[in-house]
């Protein structure tokens, strides 16, 4: 394009201009110094402060989280301990009750056994005494019966049979 050729040939695009360089330098330095004082100082301080504030907030939050986690862990430990304790207590109680029951039942059994034994012995004694009494009675009766028979009827055979049958009767009645 002819236009671009003219622009290139113009040459003044790259021509140095000391005045402009001078003014640029002056303007830039003044702007830099003023802005450094009035703007960058406050802004950067505020930004840094905020950054630190945010960092400390995050740190604090982390710390709080750690703390709460520790508390939670402690609570869990306590709970587990309490659980174990209650388990132990229940187990002990159950064992004790078991033992107690076994003891009591054993005692009762032995007591009953003893009572049964003593009762049996008493019965045996009573039986023996009764038998003695009965024997004496039977002997007396026999003697009396014999006396009567002899008195009334001296038939020996009949008397003998009567006595026999009497004894028989007595023995069946006893049983």
């Amino acid at each position: 394009m002819l236009t671009s050729g003219i622009i290139l040939l113009a040459g003044s695009l790259l021509s140095p201009n000391p005045g402009l360089i001078f003014w640029t330098a002056i303007t830039f330095v003044i702007v830099l110094l003023i802005l450094k004082k009035i703007a960058w100082g406050p802004i950067l301080t505020a930004l840094e402060e905020r950054e630190k504030g945010i960092q400390s907030s995050i740190d604090r939050a982390h710390q709080a989280k750690d703390e709460s986690e520790a508390i939670l862990r402690k609570n869990k430990e306590l709970l587990a301990k309490a659980d174990a304790e209650s388990d132990r207590i229940i187990r002990e109680g159950r064992d004790f009750a078991e033992k107690l029951r076994a003891d009591i039942s054993q005692k009762a059994q032995s007591e009953a056994q003893k009572m049964i034994a003593s009762a049996k012995e008493e019965i045996e004694q009573e039986k023996r005494r009764a038998l003695d009494v009965l024997r004496n009675e039977v002997a007396d009766l026999a003697v009396k019966g014999a006396e009567k028979i002899i008195k009334t009827n001296l038939d020996a055979d009949i008397q003998k049979r009567i006595v026999d049958s009497m004894i028989q009767d007595l023995s069946t009645k006893r049983n």
Partner: peptide, 9 residues
Amino acid sequence: YDISVTKHV
């Protein structure tokens, strides 16, 4: 030195 104020200044 020409330090005149120009458009760009």
